[in-house]
């Protein structure tokens, strides 16, 4: 992983914690290849809504793009890579 990706992932983890108000989590708690929903980070459907709306607001990624790429919710890594490609 290059330095730029490493930096982006750290920043994006901090953003996720802020958007989802995961007050008991730190960026280190979010493992790159762990599932985001259900097991793993334990997010739910309302968290998914929050992420989609935040991606549009913060990164100007339209929801249609997210809808076409639902596999990005499999893990933090997949989501972060998707967002980084849209920078």
């Amino acid at each position: 992983m290059d330095e730029q990706t490493k930096q982006f992932r750290l920043k994006f983890k901090q953003q996720l914690i802020e958007w989802l108000q995961l007050e008991d989590k730190t960026p280190e708690d979010i493992v790159d290849d762990q599932p985001l929903f259900g097991e793993g980070l334990g997010l739910d459907s309302l968290d998914a809504v929050e992420i989609v709306i935040a991606l549009k607001r913060e990164y100007n990624i339209p929801q249609t793009e997210v809808d076409k790429n639902r596999e990005i919710f499999v893990s933090f890594e997949a989501l972060a890579d998707f967002v980084q490609k849209h920078l």
Binding site: F37, S45, A48, V49, V52, I53, Q63, T64, V66, D67
Partner: peptide, 14 residues
Amino acid sequence: SEFGGLLECVSALE
């Protein structure tokens, strides 16, 4: 369906 259909609801509302 995935996420209880809520993402489709957001799209429709928007």
